[in-house]
Design a protein around this nucleic acid. Structure first.
Lengths: 122, 122
DNA sequence: CAGCATCCTATGGGATACTG
DNA sequence: CAGTATCCCATAGGATGCTG
């Protein structure tokens, strides 16, 4: 009951909300690329090429979400085939800091987790 | 092509793997509780009471995963109604550090994101 | 080039009920 | 008390095709 959309909005925890935003398949990679590799700005197709496996639709959706959340700006260059430039906002850049720390932890420890999983059977 | 299970295993990025592990609905909260509120250990039902909205099944599943990943230990006390104690491993505690930083960011900035979303019209 | 709409499948996760 | 199994729905996300 309560709501049926099976959530309750995490009751309180802001971290849950954050993970709902960045825990999806492509968001963290997008933020990382915009922070590290394209600190100025990147075009849609640049990002797409930099993210092997992303579908057109998902990149589009990810960027829209980031833009709506105020983490990314979208600038349309009025050329003949239109060029769209995406860049992190200040808020987006500030988010990259904790994410970078998480990345570092992941790079250091994920292999250990994988080993555990393997020996724990599945 | 390639694989059909639509993944490619994120190609390289350890952060994707990590977010696949901790980005789900209950994992980060569980780690937080075991780190901050139950630094010694917690019983299943304690955790359940501390996590409003979690279903029996999901908590069970979450703990199994954490245990398999080597982030949590599971100790069965051989009493008449069996008591099971969960605690973070050293690896689990080390993961809580970057998570704590993420939590702090979330507490500081999530309201800003919510505002953006609201004014961006969902 | 960038974006939208449609379709379809796989998965996450809740409810419920049964077991030691 | 803790765990497992079943059922069922909502969502994520991939593929494809059309538009300016």
């Amino acid at each position: 009951m309560t709501d049926r959309r099976g959530d309750l909005f995490s009751v309180e925890c802001p971290t849950r909300h954050l993970l709902d935003r960045i825990g999806d398949k492509w968001t963290s990679m997008t933020v990382k690329l915009l922070a590290e590799r394209y600190p100025d700005s990147a075009r849609f197709s640049e990002l797409q090429r930099a993210m092997p496996g992303v579908s057109h639709k998902m990149l589009s959706q990810t960027l829209q979400r980031l833009t709506a959340d105020g983490l990314v700006t979208r600038r349309v260059e009025d050329s003949v085939p239109p060029a769209v430039h995406y860049a992190l906002t200040a808020l987006g850049r500030s988010l990259d800091e904790p994410l970078a720390i998480l990345r570092e932890w992941a790079e250091t420890h994920m292999s250990e987790i994988e080993r555990h999983r393997a020996s724990a059977g599945r």
